[in-house]
Amino acid sequence: MAGKILITGGTGLIGTRLSEMLIDLGYEVAHLSRNNGKQSHYQTFKWDIENNYIEEKALTYTDYIINLAGAGVADGKWTDKRKHEIRDSRVHGTNLLIEQLKKTSHHVKGFISASAVGIYGNSGERLVAEESSSAENDFLADVCRDWETAANQARNLNIRTVIFRIGIVLSKEGGALPQLAKPIKLMVGAPLGSGRQYISWIHLDDMCRLLIAALEDHQFQGVYNAVAPHPVTNEEFTHQLAEVLHKPLTGLKVPAFGLKLMLGEMSETVLGGSRVSANKVLQTGFTYEYNYLEEALESFYVKEA
């Protein structure tokens, strides 16, 4: 069922790979971007979140919107300015899309939006599912709540709406994995803080396959956790990554106070974590290519070893 897909955040980690996979499947892909896209392989429409502008042709062009835009959470210390960027790029961007859809004569059949497992805050050992309550007084949880509220407005326009609470996306091209692998490759790898905090991860290709499944399978509606079925603790993650890279660990742990000094408030994202259930996705019949961390890591690093 090929169609026309408009992606926000199309040049990000997920958007780049997703665009390639959609093209391979025969879809037409366009990006919504702040830049004119002259260097892009894809048709590019302009938007400007600060000035509430979206090129009208973007919304009359598309059959489905995949909304992935958002400033990188780990791209720097959380100054007040940075926190506004993280929030506005997600919440204002999504609100702008919905407002423009209300005003435009369009044929959009589906609105698929990103959110994040950060909505659960630091849930410790407890396994959290989509109906679990979100964390209170937690910056990322607040952002995710408002982001989902904005995306859910698409339902009032009779557009099938799917929200994915995305875990740590594993890829060699960017995101958390190269950062976690770097100290291990330098022989200074160690778990962070207690090491007991959970990492709910998903392989980049499974993430993209899940977004495509949500386009094509109309049973997808509402909120889903986009995580692999077997989350691991930070300590397990560090040990498995060291094994795949054939590198020893120091036998120490990176102390929490050091991370707090270095990262400030952002340290909460590495010292805390959530153990997130994939059951709702599994119940749709979706099959993961990478169920276990070891096979996911091997897909990136075995050729190197």
Rank of each mutant, 00 (worst) to 15 (best):
L127S: 09
V128P: 03
V128C: 13
V128T: 12
A129W: 00
A129E: 15
E130P: 13
E131R: 12
E131I: 14
E131H: 14
E131P: 06
S132G: 07
S133G: 05
S133T: 13
S133L: 07
S133P: 00
S134N: 10
A135Q: 08
N137M: 08
N137V: 12
L140I: 12
L140G: 01
L140D: 02
A141W: 01
V143A: 04
C144M: 05
C144K: 00
W147R: 08
E148M: 09
E148W: 07
A150Y: 02
A151I: 05
A151K: 02
A151P: 02
N152L: 15
N152W: 07
A154Y: 00
R155Y: 01
N156W: 00
L157R: 06
L157E: 11
N158R: 14
N158A: 14
I159Q: 04
I159C: 10
I159S: 04
R160D: 06
F164W: 10
F164T: 02
I166C: 04
G167V: 11
G167T: 13
I168Q: 04
V169K: 02
V169N: 01
L170C: 08
L170E: 05
G175M: 05
L177R: 07
L177D: 08
L177F: 00
P178Q: 10
P178M: 12
P178T: 10
L180W: 06
L180K: 09
K182T: 15
K182R: 14
K182H: 12
K182V: 05
I184K: 03
I184S: 00
K185C: 03
L186V: 08
M187P: 03
G189S: 08
A190P: 06
P191H: 06
P191I: 10
L192G: 06
G193D: 02
G195K: 00
R196N: 14
Q197A: 06
Q197S: 05
Y198F: 15
Y198H: 05
I199D: 00
S200T: 09
I202L: 05
I202K: 01
I202Q: 03
H203T: 05
L204N: 00
L204Y: 01
L204A: 06
C208I: 12
C208W: 03
C208G: 10
C208P: 05
R209L: 12
I212H: 11
I212F: 09
A213S: 14
A213C: 10
A214R: 00
A214M: 07
D217E: 11
Q219R: 13
F220W: 06
F220Y: 15
Q221G: 10
Y224Q: 11
Y224W: 09
N225C: 11
N225T: 07
N225D: 15
A226S: 13
A228P: 00
T233R: 06
N234C: 11
N234V: 08
N234S: 12
E235A: 15
E235Q: 14
E235V: 08
H239P: 07
H239W: 04
L241G: 10
E243M: 11
E243I: 09
V244C: 03
L245G: 02
K247H: 04
L249H: 01
L249C: 07
T250L: 09
T250P: 04
T250S: 14
L252I: 08
K253D: 06
